[in-house]
């Protein structure tokens, strides 16, 4: 199940999107998500769909990787759709026992589903085309202004990149320990809840110990290389906006403008009759 979540899984490829400054991608993802919620009309979703399709094409990431993340939110989506479908007051379309499906209900449910799907797909593209390190670098630089308000931006970014770095390591470690205990006849599947929790002890104790050991080693290695926090720390590859990044910002602005205009002036709904 853990492997189904595409968020945070980089897909190596050579594309314009991969080379883009992580800050641009962060801002664009945020803008895309906001635009989905701010401009809710059929015509603007049409624009969003085209934009998403173009970005997916540009990213050169296979489509199934982008939709992988959807599996994880399927239940959430189902609940949202069902609640919206049955609990929105308005013109009734269909009546089933005590529940009524309304025109407005169908509309909100459909919009909600599209929003969620696009949200996941949009953010998946960002994480698939950006390495975790680039991502935290982008955040560190992009949120650097918060230092004025005494927010420890560098420390947060460092913690995030270490945490992200440790996810695959700890997953490998879990796999290894699990196999080793299975070789000794451990059983992680059968039994009731209490039994199962008890059976986890041979897995969790070595896992915690190894996490602490790794943390210790890492801290030592960082200090040995003279790490002393963010003050005065320079980067080997400092983030700088290039021409493509500026072009990307212009395209983003144009997209937002188009979303705004279509939601305001192109009313496909009235033509279709709802």
């Amino acid at each position: 199940m853990l492997r189904d979540i595409t968020l945070g899984q980089y897909y190596p490829a050579s594309s314009v999107l991969h080379r883009l400054d992580p800050r641009v991608k962060l801002v664009a993802t945020l803008a895309f998500i906001v635009s989905l919620f701010a401009f809710g009309s059929v015509s603007s979703y049409f624009v969003a769909t085209i934009a998403l399709a173009v970005v997916i094409k540009l990213s050169r990431v296979p489509f199934r990787f982008i939709t992988k993340g959807l599996k994880a939110i399927f239940i959430l989506m189902l609940i949202t759709v069902i609640f919206n479908l049955f609990l929105t007051p308005g013109t009734p379309v269909l009546e089933v026992w005590k529940f009524t499906i309304t025109m407005e209900g169908i509309r909100t449910a459909a919009f909600m589903a599209i929003r969620l799907i696009y949200l996941i797909m949009g953010s998946s593209i960002m994480t698939l085309t950006t390495t975790p390190n680039d991502l935290t670098d982008g955040m560190e630089k992009g949120l650097g202004f918060l230092k004025v308000f005494h927010v420890p931006v560098h420390e947060i970014a460092m913690m995030m990149s270490i945490a992200l770095r440790f996810i695959p390591i700890l997953m490998d470690e879990t796999d290894k320990i699990m196999k080793a205990q299975m070789a000794r006849g451990a059983d992680f599947e059968s039994g009731n809840l209490i039994q199962k929790a008890k059976n986890m002890v041979p897995l969790l104790v070595p896992l915690f110990i190894s996490a602490f050991r790794r943390a210790n080693d890492l801290a030592m290695a960082m200090e040995a290389r003279g790490y002393h926090g963010g003050e005065g720390r320079t980067k080997m590859h400092p983030l700088e906006y290039k021409k493509t990044d500026k072009t990307a910002y212009v395209i983003l602005l144009m997209y937002l403008l188009l979303m705004f205009l279509t939601s305001r002036y192109v009313k496909i709904e009235t033509w279709l009759g709802f």
Binding site: K176, I177, K179, A180, Q181, A183, V201, P202, V205, P206, I209, S210
Partner: peptide, 12 residues
């Protein structure tokens, strides 16, 4: 019987 690499890491 399989003894993994660094088996001491699996003691609990």
């Amino acid at each position: 019987g399989l003894v993994f690499q660094y088996p001491e890491h699996q003691l609990f």
